[in-house]
Design a protein around this nucleic acid. Structure first.
Length: 175
DNA sequence: AAAGTGATCATG
DNA sequence: ATGATCACTTTG
């Protein structure tokens, strides 16, 4: 039984949604009707303005605006001038949390998976629960996973810097 | 180990 | 207008 994740799923706390997204299937549908499906293997949670690793730490800006939108909103931004990173906004509107999709089956690294799926900044502010070109499905797979601190956030301060908010599917390559 | 890359945000 | 800072990847 495959079902598309809906608003109700995304309307929860990032720390709850992040591990649940493991094992789910990221679907990218192209204009010609072709679809690519890849199982999500790695996620990270970013939790609000108090989380010094979260982009929303500096408050609402033009860039972070999608984080404040309702659960299920797509947040894509350019990192290091090269890579588009894709996040799933979670939680209530005006509560800036998101889950970064860091890896999918066959592609490890958040920049490589967006390149593989041709995801760019035009996807920003799309909606995972209604979009026709990007969504996530549940096929019943129950994830076994482990947690580690998040990657690439040396600029953050404790306790957020070492909070175990990275979620990796059991059996995936560890860094 | 280090560069490449460019939007974004805070300064002036 | 300029400069610092990056949720990374690749190359050596």
């Amino acid at each position: 039984m495959v079902k598309r994740l809906n608003f109700e799923f995304y309307n929860n706390h990032a720390l709850e949604v992040a591990p649940l997204l493991l094992g789910k299937i990221l679907v990218r549908r192209f204009d010609d009707g072709k679809e690519i499906r890849l199982r999500i293997t790695e996620t990270e949670a970013y939790c609000g303005e108090s989380d010094t690793a979260c982009h929303a730490k500096a408050g609402r800006t033009n860039r972070t605006k999608p984080l404040y939108d309702k659960g299920g909103t797509v947040y894509v931004y350019l990192c290091y001038g090269i890579h588009n990173l894709i996040n799933v906004v979670t939680g209530e509107k005006d509560d800036p949390q998101a889950v970064l999709i860091r890896g999918v089956e066959g592609f490890s690294g958040p920049g490589r998976l967006t390149r593989a799926l041709s995801i760019d900044r035009s996807f920003n502010e799309d909606d995972f629960s209604t979009s026709h070109r990007i969504w996530i499905e549940d096929d019943g797979f129950v994830p076994k996973y482990k947690t580690t601190p998040r990657i690439g956030i040396d600029y953050a301060t404790e306790p957020y810097k070492s909070a175990p908010w990275r979620f990796v599917l059991e059996g995936e390559a560890e860094k």
